[in-house]
Amino acid sequence: MSQISCWIIYNGNLPQKKFMDFAQWTAAAAQKKGIRPHIIKNNDLLVMFRNGQSFLAGHLKDEMPDFVLFGDKDIFLARQLETLGIPVFNSADSIEICDNKSHMYQTLATNGILFPKTIIAPKVFGELQDESHYETVIREIRFPMVVKEAYGSFGMQVHLVQNEAELLALMKTLKNTEYVFQEMVASSYGRDVRINIVGGKAVASMLRKSETDFRANVSFGGKTEPYTPTKEQEDLAAACAVAAGTAFAGVDLLFGEDGTPLVCEINSNAHIRSIYECTGIDVADHMMDYILRTIPS
């Protein structure tokens, strides 16, 4: 019986250490399970169309793996790999949902999942010419409010707005960038819970706290500590993963005013070093076990 092989795909245009670290970390987990991993840049695999058909172009196009661990957000490449019949984790559809916060919140609402009051900014082409919608936004969301760009990771592209002048200035700066307006949950200022879900179950959890920023992300100085989630928190995080269709997800939860957990966001490409360093739990081991149970034998 031949050894199971996998591709671990990362973005070749993101040279930061943390992206390669995720690829190497999961490759090591694969090897521990007897899987032969191959770390590949997304720009080594190009989606090509010819004569009404689609292909992979590049020097790896004839070496198909048993599955792909997709550590990137190149949705069209992920979908092309699925078209070739290769199991992809996470799926292209689930990455697409999580990658765009407007899409993500709309999906959560469709599934009745609780998150802070949110308004999707209307579509803008070029410069912002008509700002009349801001009156509705202020009336419904109130200050202070959080403005989240639709695309962004690690707490980046998230802005705290204190008043009308700041809001109008930011709207003009963002122009035709997609974004959402969201109420700030004061009871969760500078703290949240990250729960890693694998195969619909919580496998690791940590509390993140910041003394200096409304965002609890480690990238902005947040500190972590092991955390035992309540059943309500675990169930909510698992429901998020199901709604988004993710095999694995890092779900961030806020502490609501009355103690009710609220969803901050779902990460389909959650990095796992920090939660390992915090809890000693290697989420990648759980990911590989799940994949081996799932892929055709």
Rank of each mutant, 00 (worst) to 15 (best):
M20Y: 11
G34H: 05
I35C: 06
I35K: 01
H38D: 13
H38K: 12
I40H: 01
K41H: 14
V47G: 10
F49C: 14
G58V: 06
D66G: 12
L69I: 14
G71N: 14
A78Q: 06
R79F: 13
Q80C: 09
P87V: 03
V88T: 07
I95F: 02
S102M: 15
F115W: 06
I119T: 04
G126T: 03
Q129C: 04
E140V: 04
E149K: 04
S153E: 12
S153K: 03
A169V: 00
M171C: 11
K172E: 15
Y179W: 05
V180H: 02
V180Q: 05
V180K: 02
E183P: 08
M184H: 08
D192L: 03
K201S: 14
A202Y: 02
A202R: 01
T212I: 11
D213T: 09
S219W: 04
E225W: 00
Q233P: 08
D235M: 08
A238M: 12
A239D: 08
C240D: 09
F248M: 13
D252K: 00
E257V: 11
G259A: 06
T260K: 11
I266R: 03
N267K: 08
N269D: 13
I275K: 01
T279I: 07
G280N: 09
D285Q: 05
H286D: 12
M287F: 13
D289L: 04
P296G: 09
